[in-house]
Simulated scan of single mutants.
Amino acid sequence: MAIEVVRIPVLSDNYVWLVHDAASGETMVVDPAVAEPVLAAATARGWTISAIWNTHWHPDHTGGNAAIKAATGATIYGPAAEAAKIPTLDMQLAEGDTVKLGAHIATVLETPAHTAGHITYHFADDAIAFTGDTLFAMGCGRLFEGTAEQMFANMQRLAQLPDETTVYCAHEYTESNGRYALVAEPDNAAIVSRMADVVAARARGEATVPTSIGLERATNPFMRASSATELAERRAKKDAFRS
């Protein structure tokens, strides 16, 4: 039985992911920026949160940890390399570790660069990846604590996942990312086509994520960068980009 993933929009542009396995009755939440909307969404469905999975330490990904744990007794999992910055952490995770939701197994991939210890959760059998602030729809995270070389390695690694892999990232940045993608690769017809869909979706107030590895391979200028040097150039231009 497939796991169910519910999108919870919070703050200005964050997405928290509520993930439920009907077979076991287990529910976990990925990167809760805040607690109240997450607890309300779970309660409305009759679900009890038993775990929190953090991808990195930033407050807009961990801010709801303590309150959710107090309300539910949830166990909090996150990157071992950032344990000092996530005081609520119970279980420290590193490359190759596995975590479970019922019978569904996720492997931990270390994907540093946005933060020094950022991790991604990959459910290979379910073709799902929770990428936090590493891989976005048509974008990647800013290089706050790491290097372009690290982010290039991340992009190359994630690009090797099956095209059908559904990517749940943590922000609604697609339209702004796409405006830069049109500049980075003006002759890429796939980006032009995708942006038309994105602009229309946003005009209707609809979300543009999750995305997929196949779609990112075709339209993400950071995943498509040919080298760490090119990724660094594109990241610097995106940081300064004003559409």
Rank of each mutant, 00 (worst) to 15 (best):
P186R: 03
P32L: 09
T48I: 08
R7V: 08
L89K: 05
T229C: 04
T165G: 03
I119T: 14
A153E: 07
W17T: 02
D31C: 10
P87T: 13
G78R: 01
E164F: 01
T107L: 12
F130W: 04
N54M: 04
V199C: 02
T134W: 00
I49G: 00
V16D: 00
G78F: 06
K237R: 08
V209H: 03
A207S: 08
G102I: 00
A124L: 07
D187E: 15
Y180N: 06
K85T: 07
I86H: 02
D13M: 05
F222Q: 09
N54Q: 13
V209E: 01
N54S: 06
L109E: 03
A103G: 15
A94T: 15
H118Q: 15
Y168K: 11
E230I: 02
M1P: 10
T208M: 10
I3P: 00
T43P: 01
A225F: 03
R194C: 07
M138C: 07
K100P: 09
A203W: 10
A207N: 00
A203V: 10
G214D: 08
A80P: 01
A201Y: 02
V30G: 01
M28Y: 05
R234E: 06
K100V: 07
P221L: 13
T229Q: 15
R217V: 05
I119F: 08
G46D: 06
A44I: 04
D126C: 04
A116S: 11
L89P: 02
E185C: 08
I105M: 11
I191M: 09
D125A: 13
A184Y: 05
L93I: 12
W17Q: 03
E26G: 01
V183C: 04
F144G: 05
H20A: 02
I191W: 11
F123C: 03
V38T: 09
G102Y: 00
G46C: 05
H20Y: 10
R234N: 13
R217H: 13
D126E: 15
F222L: 10
P162D: 13
A33K: 10
E26M: 03
M1Y: 04
A189E: 15
P9Y: 03
E175I: 11
V5H: 02
A225R: 04
F123L: 12
G132L: 01
M91Q: 15
L231G: 03
F123I: 06
H114E: 06
D13V: 05
P210E: 04
T115Y: 03
E4I: 06
S212P: 12
T211F: 08
V99L: 14
T88K: 02
P32A: 06
E4G: 00
A240E: 14
